[in-house]
């Protein structure tokens, strides 16, 4: 067993794990953060996307022991003080989901997209950037609308925060 420590959603977390433990297993089984989902388990569907040191990755395709000392953000770390993150709220407002299984990964990818590409995202960019996230229910239309709204509102929220 190897001792691994990370900062997960702002809090120190550690466990003794087998070397083959995937990041998603560490999050779900050791930390009981089950909002991060395992869909395909073959690094294609994106249901397991989390942020590691500010970058979106597929947590089913990274070893927990590789990420000693990393800062990890999962879907559970987005809402603050009982208030949904603007991207979460946008998915609710636009009905950007049906069964909801892919939604945590979609939202984590969408926030990463805004961090890299800015808050003015056209439909083509959103669809291209969702290349690594598969949804089997919605046909993507409302997901794309959600991401566009969430991106705009992240900019507004960011401006409000900067003004405080």
């Amino acid at each position: 067993m190897i001792h691994v420590s990370m900062i997960v959603n702002g809090k120190a977390a550690s466990a003794d794990v087998d070397s083959r433990t995937l990041l998603v297993q560490f999050l779900r089984e050791n930390l009981r953060l089950t909002g991060t989902h395992v869909g395909c388990d073959t690094s294609q569907c994106g249901a397991c996307v989390v942020h590691v040191d500010g970058r979106a990755i597929k947590s089913c395709t990274a070893l927990a022991v590789s990420l000693e000392g990393a800062e990890v953000t999962t879907i559970e770390g987005l809402a603050k003080g009982g208030k949904l993150h603007p991207m979460q709220q946008a998915f609710q407002d636009n009905h950007g989901l049906q069964c909801g299984f892919c939604t945590p990964g979609m939202i984590m990818s969408a926030i990463d997209m805004v961090n890299r590409k800015g808050s003015h995202l056209d439909e083509h960019t959103i669809r291209e950037e969702l290349d690594g996230n598969i949804c089997r229910c919605t046909g993507y239309h409302n997901i794309v609308k959600s991401v566009a709204q969430g991106a705009r509102e992240m900019a507004t929220a960011g401006a409000a925060k900067a003004a405080e």
């Binding site: 994106g46 990755i57 597929k58 395709t61 990274a62 990818s109 290349d131 690594g132």
Partner: peptide, 9 residues
């Protein structure tokens, strides 16, 4: 290459 998440690793 791949998708955004693959490119980050």
């Amino acid at each position: 290459i791949g998708d955004p998440h693959v490119r980050n690793r």
